[in-house]
Amino acid sequence: MNQQNIPIIEITNLNKWFDNFHVLKNINMTVHKGEIIVICGPSGSGKSTLIRCINRIEEHQKGKIIVAGTELTGKMKNIASVRKEVGMVFQDFDLFPHLTVLENLTLAPAWILKMPRKKAEETAMALLKRVQIHDQAFKMPGQLSGGQQQRVAIARALCMNPKIMLFDEPTSALDPEMVKEVLDVIRQLAHDGMTMICVTHEMGFAKQVANRILFMDQGEIVEENNPETFFTSPKYDRTQKFLSQII
């Protein structure tokens, strides 16, 4: 892991409000290339909002976010170049229900990268193979199970060849029997050296793959630690209370 020291996401003094509600309070964090960060915390703690700021699905009001060397400002050009580097997977999959699985993956490369159709389809098939769902390429998303849909969503997030992947509770909407197949795919990605930030309640998964775990509460990063220390001897009482409630 000689890449560990190259910062790829730098967030300084980030603040965000929803109307008058202060959701993110003075967030500072740096993510290095190849790092796997897990963010956990009670609902409403701002963890989803934080990662949604990283590809500007949410706009922040104060502070600085630099992703892969580009600062996120109001400039459409900057936003576009950041989104090219960042893939995102959502809790509710949000596949496009009117397009086939394959079309879900080829749409952006064909229209944004102007990739020829055949090449876009080949790339898409390779990605579907990577998440082991290439045999369903011509089905509609509605015909797939939740776990399959989420794996397609992961492949779709990879279709623009991003350097960073954001996961927003990727297994929370799944039936218990399907959690593993999705986590396996994410694990594989981690193994391949992808930089990832993952909001999740799967503590077993966090313990296994994360380099660092961030615990958030009420819009702040309360604690930041490596997995062993985080689970065995957390620094803050709040962290301990949270862990005692979910494990």
């Binding site: 949604r52 590809n55 699905i57 576009a80 989104r83 090219k84 960042v86 893939g87 995102m88 959502f90 509710d92 949000d94 596949l95 496009f96 749409l107 952006a108 229209w111 944004i112 969503a153 779709r156 997030a157 279709c159 623009m160």
Partner: peptide, 11 residues
């Protein structure tokens, strides 16, 4: 969510 998903892949 549909719009956000589309935006996130760069559309």
């Amino acid at each position: 969510g549909q719009i956000e998903a589309a935006a996130s892949i760069g559309l």
